[in-house]
Design a protein around this nucleic acid. Structure first.
Length: 261
DNA sequence: ATGTCACTTTACAAGTGA
């Protein structure tokens, strides 16, 4: 089974590239973040034409998540209990091929001084409480998405520059790490303990060209999935302006290959 | 050194969010 997670930064702006990504990788499951459109406005038809089903949890202009899958999703849920900002569309989950797939778009936080940062910490606390309550470590659960947290210094191009800043601060890293205690494992990091790979580069300052990035798009899984994770790749080509039609997202897709079933 | 991109609006430029 092949699962991709990608923050598209507007599905409308990224539709040709999203369809090209499906044609290129032919994933079983594609989890999208920052679709930035309502469920009514979701362009389902070109996905259906390619043999995919769509489940979306969106809103106008901001946030928005969706799961695109070859097999229909079962037991779809939107949001999560205890969400301190339930009006923001950030979580959708469903079951496919016996795997429970949770797709997240974590609160960005803006900067550690900004009120949104306090919301980010509260949101991560609620996420920890929810996931730690529902995770059964021996049951196949995949939690993918834009975590807006770089888990460790190796995930940052310049750890000293980023020390304590939003996306890298200790408080958010501690909350992220709490998911490990619940039985989740970082599939990319377990496959490649020493590799520095990024998934996000700021649009500004030629950051992609200089590879000034962070690894904030992640796939976490319980033991049955960690043991069957064959490889994980970052589709860096997709971040290049020249790769497809229109401009790139500031995130690259993360492609997870599972030996499943 | 905040230099981009995508969104919105009593729109035709400017503010916001990332």
């Amino acid at each position: 089974m092949k699962v991709i997670t990608w923050n598209v930064n507007s599905l409308r702006a990224r539709l040709p590239r999203t369809l090209a990504l499906l044609d290129r990788h032919k994933p079983d499951v594609l989890c999208l973040q920052e679709t930035k459109l309502t469920d009514e406005a979701f362009p389902e038809e070109p996905f259906r034409e390619r043999g995919y089903h769509v489940e979306a949890h969106g809103q106008k202009s901001y946030n928005g998540v969706a799961i695109v899958s070859r097999e229909p999703l079962e037991d779809v849920t939107k949001g999560f209990p205890g969400d301190p900002a339930p009006e923001q569309s950030r979580v959708i989950a469903g079951t496919v091929g016996g795997i429970r797939v949770v797709n997240l778009y974590v609160v960005n936080g803006k900067s550690v001084e900004h009120p949104d940062y306090a919301l980010k910490l509260a949101w991560l606390d609620a996420l920890d409480a929810w996931l730690c309550a529902v995770v059964e470590p021996e049951s196949p659960l995949l939690v993918v998405g834009d975590y807006n947290v770089a888990p460790a210094d190796i995930d940052v191009h310049d750890p000293e520059l980023w020390r304590g800043q939003n996306l890298c601060s200790d408080a958010e890293r501690e909350r992220f790490a709490a998911l490990f205690k619940g039985g989740l494992r970082d599939l990319f990091r377990e496959c490649y303990p020493e590799e520095q790979k990024f998934t996000w580069w700021d649009y500004r300052n030629g950051a992609f060209h200089k590879n000034l990035g962070l690894r904030i798009d992640l796939a976490l899984g319980t033991r049955p999935l960690a043991e069957r994770c064959k490889w994980v790749e970052v589709d860096r080509e997709e971040r290049k302006p020249s790769t497809g039609e229109g401009k790139p997202s500031d995130h690259a897709p993360l492609v997870v290959h599972l030996d499943w079933p």
